[in-house]
Simulated scan of single mutants.
Amino acid sequence: MESGLGEEASNESASLSGLSAVDQLGEDFERSLSLDAALSETDKATLRTFALKTDEHLTRRTLEKLPFAFPGAHVPSANHLRTRVAFLSGIKPVLYDCCPNSCCCYTGPHAALDNCPYCKAPRRDSRGKARSQFSYIPLIPRLQAFQANTEMATAMKHRAHGHTHKADSTISDVYDSTAYRSKLRQRVRVHDKELRHCHFSDPRDVALGLATDGFGPFRRRNKT
């Protein structure tokens, strides 16, 4: 027993080697810290700067000039701003290698490929680095962040508390659609197991929609 525990601890220690102290604590700790702990005045100033940069589309060059325009004000550097906001959000993007010509993403059946199966472009450069990457923000942490905001959490209950379905088949929202209304009478199935509750029976349930832009199925891509 002791030998097994020792081996497990050794493996865990090896898997954490090279990680910072914050990374070793795990993203769950980071998220609970950012949501539950009171923000310091410094963090509030950092977030205000980030909001200004985002809303006004400030360039990095403009951001770096702010301390000279407003001496004494707390204006973090661009690198610190990005790092601190990422930490406070508790959301970590996942990077996926992509074809530099946007043909495919190297995941699923393409995960082990070294060349694009469509245009044959190499996946990596001469240094072994991916030539192009897609930054994916995981869905679950984003939904958790929405629920942590009172205004957004209230808006997310529109389906249950803010929308009234009319019996005359008038469609004023996606929730009036036949596809959605039919789901309300269907029990949720996970794999082959049927659960006791129906779809969207809880007002906190989230209805997810998927929207895509057009794509060209033929060589001449002026039609979608």
Rank of each mutant, 00 (worst) to 15 (best):
R61V: 04
T62K: 09
T62R: 11
E64L: 07
K65L: 15
P67A: 06
F68C: 05
F70M: 13
P71S: 08
P71F: 08
G72D: 11
A73D: 08
A73I: 07
A73S: 13
H74Q: 05
S77H: 06
N79H: 09
N79Q: 13
N79K: 15
H80V: 14
L81M: 12
R82K: 12
T83M: 03
F87V: 04
V94L: 11
V94R: 14
V94C: 07
L95G: 08
Y96D: 06
D97P: 05
C98G: 01
C99G: 07
P100V: 11
N101R: 13
C104K: 03
C105N: 07
C105H: 10
Y106D: 00
Y106H: 07
Y106S: 01
Y106P: 00
T107I: 13
G108I: 07
P109M: 05
H110L: 08
A112G: 06
L113A: 09
L113H: 09
C116R: 00
R127Y: 01
A130Q: 02
R131D: 00
R131Q: 14
S132M: 14
F134P: 01
S135G: 08
Y136R: 05
P138Q: 08
P138M: 03
I140L: 15
I140G: 13
A145P: 00
A145H: 14
A145L: 12
F146L: 06
F146E: 04
N149F: 02
E151I: 04
A153Y: 03
A155N: 10
K157V: 03
H158S: 08
H158F: 14
H165W: 03
S169F: 03
T170P: 01
S172E: 11
V174S: 09
V174F: 14
S177C: 10
S177V: 04
S177N: 04
